[in-house]
Write a protein that binds this DNA or RNA. Structure first.
Length: 477
RNA sequence: GUAGAUAUAGCUCAGCUGGUUAGAGCGUCGGAUUGUGAUUCCGAAGGUCGUGGGUUCGAGCCCCAUUAUUUACCCCA
């Protein structure tokens, strides 16, 4: 006999887990729909040509590729085998499992550009697959819940992303969270302040690790990568700004001016240098957009600015982001971000539809689940939707229970009759173990008297009711 | 891909310096209670100690290999 198993990084979800997951999905779906997003579903399999090259070299390695049907090796030559997997891959696999929901969405928009009404707002809640090493909060199969808008540059979209993030987390009972926001333009300006060239990625990767390895660690890493000490000092002076959202914007701006950085990367002339601060502010797209998002949030009645943090060190890996970027962390839980997103100016470009700006974000349901569990925030532990169990004693009383069972179901009360004429003790244990709140005892005595006993499991109280009144009484409860 | 940790009952784990018949809690099943759960009491079932080699008079324990799981790095939801 072989021991049964499931692939690494995948999970089964039992009835109680599914019920909890559905709760998370419902909160997210309600929020997305209340902001006017419409549902979309795309295939599990995409053509590899759609997926490859969108996530960087690392991402390509993490794609699950699907072997072609039939004789997948029929086009393979001895030469291909000798060359290695790179030459082999396109001949044996033309499909892959989706890696995220944003790229399939971009493909959908490009394919259906003629029929869509822009701005197009869609949400999507489907599993994605990544072939990386599983560990805490990291699975090979997991669900993402994306909401994206394409076809508008309006910063209202960014503001609404913050509103939706807060609404979903609040709806789940997660109140101690931090929404981090930054702008790729700000990062670009910082990069310019360092006068570097072509090492943007090195820098972002190092900056992103700041909260993990600390300032000393980042300094060491940047020195190893060839940045000078003076440069690194400037970097930390800019990154180290403190204060409120508003204050950080102002101090960062002042820092840029001091460092002599212009938004387009050129050095300012002396004349420009003397220009009024306000004019320069307007030219820093990142800073002005972040200020605008803040104003829109205020006007929308957003009150949780203590949970919204402008973090100049926020980098995020996905290279297609060009504007605002977001990331959400649940505090006091050891878990990566539960949500993230940002604006991309040209996502559909590689599918032949350039110049369409979009902004979107995503919730990781599996991580939200893990956070809720770690914080003990799940209220329902019921393993079944059943509200009422009818117990019986023999074939005759089981038969007699069937009309009542039908009435309960017709009244909208999920109900079941215990299938076997087991000992009453066993039937009650079944109800208790599954968290069924109500048990009806319908034995020979009750049938003879035309009544039923109704027991409320939580309190242990029992009531004897005429058979005709049972359903009505339970509808009230 | 790199580095570490772990693997003993259905689950969570003990198991001393290598020494007789490998233990506990929870869960499961039966009984105390011919028709009442969660609480209490009594009892029972359940293990080729991940797998394969080796050392030894003797291995759950030591050594080697292998597989699986897991944590950190990289990257990310």
């Amino acid at each position: 006999m072989q021991k049964p198993s499931i692939p690494k990084g995948t999970r089964d979800f039992g009835p109680a887990q599914v019920a909890r997951r559905q709760h998370i999905f419902n909160v997210i779906r309600r929020t997305f729909e209340s902001f006017g997003f419409a549902p979309l579903e795309t295939p599990t399999l995409e053509n590899l040509s759609v997926l490859t090259g969108k996530y960087g070299d690392e991402g390509d390695q993490l794609l699950f590729k699907v072997l072609n049907s039939g004789d997948f090796a029929k086009d393979v030559t001895a030469e291909d085998l000798a060359t290695g997997s790179k030459a082999l891959l396109p001949k044996v696999a033309e499909k892959g499992l989706r890696y995220d929901l944003t790229v399939p969405f971009a493909r959908y928009v490009a394919m259906n550009r003629g029929t869509l009404t822009f701005p197009f707002k869609r949400y999507q809640m489907q599993p994605v697959w990544r072939a990386d090493r599983p560990q805490r909060g990291r699975y090979r199969e997991f669900y993402q819940c994306d909401a994206d808008v394409v076809g508008t540059d309006s910063l209202l979209c960014e503001a609404e992303i913050v509103l939706m993030m807060a609404q979903v987390l609040g709806g789940l009972g997660l109140h101690d969270f931090t929404i981090k926001i930054n702008h790729r333009g700000v990062l670009r300006n910082i990069y310019q302040a360092l006068g570097g060239e072509g090492r943007e990625t090195d820098l972002f990767v190092a900056i992103d690790k700041l909260d993990k390895i600390g300032r000393d660690g980042v300094t060491k890493e940047l020195l190893e990568r060839g940045f000078s000490e003076g440069t690194i000092e400037t970097l930390f002076a800019l990154l180290g700004v403190e204060g409120s959202y508003e204050e950080k914007l102002q101090r960062l701006l002042a820092g840029f001016v001091t460092a002599g950085v212009e938004p387009d990367g050129t050095r300012p002339t002396e004349a420009e240098d003397s220009a009024a601060t306000d004019d320069i502010t307007a030219s820093y797209r990142g800073l002005t957009e972040l200020a605008e998002v803040r104003d829109l949030l205020v006007a929308s009645g957003f009150r949780q600015f203590d949970r919204l943090e402008f973090d100049p060190t926020l980098a995020r890996g996905l290279s297609y982001y060009t504007g605002c970027i977001f990331e959400v962390k649940i505090n006091n839980v050891q878990m990566g971000s539960v949500s993230g997103g940002g604006r991309y100016d040209n996502l559909t470009g590689s599918f032949g539809l350039p110049g369409v700006s979009g902004v979107g974000f995503s919730f990781g349901v599996d991580r939200l689940y893990d956070c809720l569990e770690a914080l003990d925030l799940f209220t329902s532990t019921a393993e079944t939707p059943t509200r009422c169990l009818i117990t019986h004693f023999d074939v005759a009383s089981g038969r007699a229970a069937l009309p009542l069972l039908a009435q309960l179901r017709a009244a909208g009360i999920p109900s079941e009759l215990y299938p076997d004429a087991s000992k009453l003790q066993k039937q009650f244990k079944y109800a208790d173990a599954k968290g069924i709140p109500l048990v009806i005892v319908l034995g020979p005595e009750e049938i003879a008297a035309g009544v039923a006993k109704v027991k409320i499991m939580a309190s242990g109280t029992e009531r004897v009711l005429p058979l005709g009144e049972v359903v009505a009484a339970m509808t009230v409860e």
